[in-house]
Design a protein around this nucleic acid. Structure first.
Length: 135
DNA sequence: GCCAACGTTGGC
DNA sequence: GCCAACGTTGGC
């Protein structure tokens, strides 16, 4: 089991929208590093859902329900999507501020490489974020 | 809305 | 294959 974090601008695709849709394909990734991370996702992996631009917080946990396949929104064979479904909404969102303030989370790409939109997390890091959401 | 960070493109 | 120019992302 692997752990991930994905970013989405809430006015483009929000957590609420995901809950409403029950399932979505995660499209729009046009960055090789992010794409490689998508390809490494396995069914059942848990994915933290982060709102960028507005909110700036982790709002929920999604789950990979289908592994990567050709991005249906483009003919370009370089790009892939995965299917995500809502797994659990966080009781309390975890803000970027909290994440930046936690010594145990200084290595994650959210802090170190702001522009990456799909990133891997260590289990420990995933757990720390859940711990923060518990308050 | 600005700007820093960083990825991509294209000329040489 | 280097590097400058350019575009995009995302925090502030």
């Amino acid at each position: 089991m692997n752990y991930w974090l994905v970013k989405s601008e809430p006015f483009k695709y929000s957590w609420d929208q995901l809950e409403k849709d029950k399932q979505t394909f995660w499209d729009g990734v046009r960055n090789y590093q992010a794409r490689n991370n998508l390809k490494a996702m396995q069914q059942g992996d848990l994915v933290l859902f982060y709102h960028s631009n507005e909110g700036l917080e982790v709002v929920g946990i999604a789950q990979v329900v289908k592994e990567h396949y050709q991005d249906p929104t483009t003919e370009d064979a370089r790009w892939v999507v995965v299917d995500l479904a809502p797994y659990k909404k966080l009781k309390k969102s975890v803000t970027l501020e909290q994440i930046k303030a936690d010594d145990r989370l200084q290595q994650i790409a959210l802090v170190r490489q702001g522009r990456l939109s799909v990133m891997p997390l260590q289990k420990e890091e995933f757990d720390v974020i859940l711990e923060l959401s518990a308050g």
